[in-house]
């Protein structure tokens, strides 16, 4: 069992007075430990829903999710969630922000505190630990949000358009930054994005979703010949355009 995530026949329907919405249907995949998965798909095809299901924040109406071989029911302690906005709390210092997870789980031991301080040191936020979020740049804020997410030592990171709120330049830098942290900390990551280039530059595999009800249309294994696999270098790889065109056609965007 090297599959850290396994999804079987997953389906999700939302019910409302206006009728029911088939958000996801028949989704099957597995993710290996340490893999970086990107999910692309049309707007409203159920990508955020899928992440909520993986995190155990929603109950699927069909099928099941296994994390580390255990069926998910209720908020899973093995996953960490990151959103488009960093959602750092303005009324807390950076230090107290990144400690919020352990605080909620009541695991705020000396060991955790030490671990979090080390993360802050390693990733260059130690000098800013007593500052408030508004005193940090967008890139640093996103890095703080990532440290907050890994402070509870999750094995799997779910990133829902985590870079979309940043301007293009910052975004490229933050891509590299976050990617290297995720790799260094040895985490498995699932990133939802609208940006095809971003998905290719970061992913080991890209899942392309169909229109609603969302299901996996195709999976691309990204094999790039570049000296180091960092998002920025990946963009220069000769195969990059090939994947880009394939996925672009697959997404079948009409204006």
């Amino acid at each position: 069992m090297s599959d850290i995530v396994a999804v079987h026949n997953l389906g999700m329907k939302y019910h409302s007075l206006n009728g029911e919405i088939d958000a996801l249907k028949n989704v099957n995949f597995t993710v290996k430990k340490g893999e970086f998965i990107c999910i692309v798909g049309p707007s409203g095809c159920g990508k955020s829903t899928l992440l909520s299901l993986l995190a155990g924040l929603l109950k699927p109406t069909e099928g099941e999710v296994y994390i580390k071989g255990k069926k998910v029911s209720g908020a899973s302690l093995d996953v960490g969630y990151m959103f488009q906005k960093d959602h750092l709390f303005e009324w807390r210092t950076i230090h107290r922000n990144v400690l919020i997870g352990p605080e909620i789980r009541r695991t705020l031991t000396d060991e955790t505190k030490e671990y979090v301080l080390n993360l802050l040191k390693t990733y260059g936020l130690y000098e800013f630990k007593d500052k408030y979020p508004s005193q940090l740049s967008g890139g640093m804020r996103q890095r703080a949000a990532l440290i907050r997410t890994i402070a509870t030592k999750p094995d799997i990171l779910l990133l829902d358009e985590a870079f979309s709120a940043l301007d293009y330049q910052t975004r490229l830098a933050v891509n590299d930054d976050i990617y290297s942290i995720i790799k260094k900390e040895n985490k498995t990551a699932i990133l939802v994005t609208h940006d095809i280039a971003e998905s290719i530059s970061m992913a080991d595999r890209v899942f392309v979703f169909s229109k609603r009800p969302g299901t996996i249309k195709n999976i691309y294994e990204i094999k790039l010949s570049c000296p180091q696999r960092t998002p920025l270098c990946s963009r220069d790889a000769p195969e990059f355009r090939y994947y880009f065109n394939k996925i672009w056609k697959e997404l079948d965007v009409h204006v």
């Binding site: 909520s52 924040l57 908020a75």
Partner: peptide, 8 residues
């Protein structure tokens, strides 16, 4: 949602 993901 962030808080729920932490299990709050």
């Amino acid at each position: 949602k962030l808080m729920e993901a932490f299990g709050a």
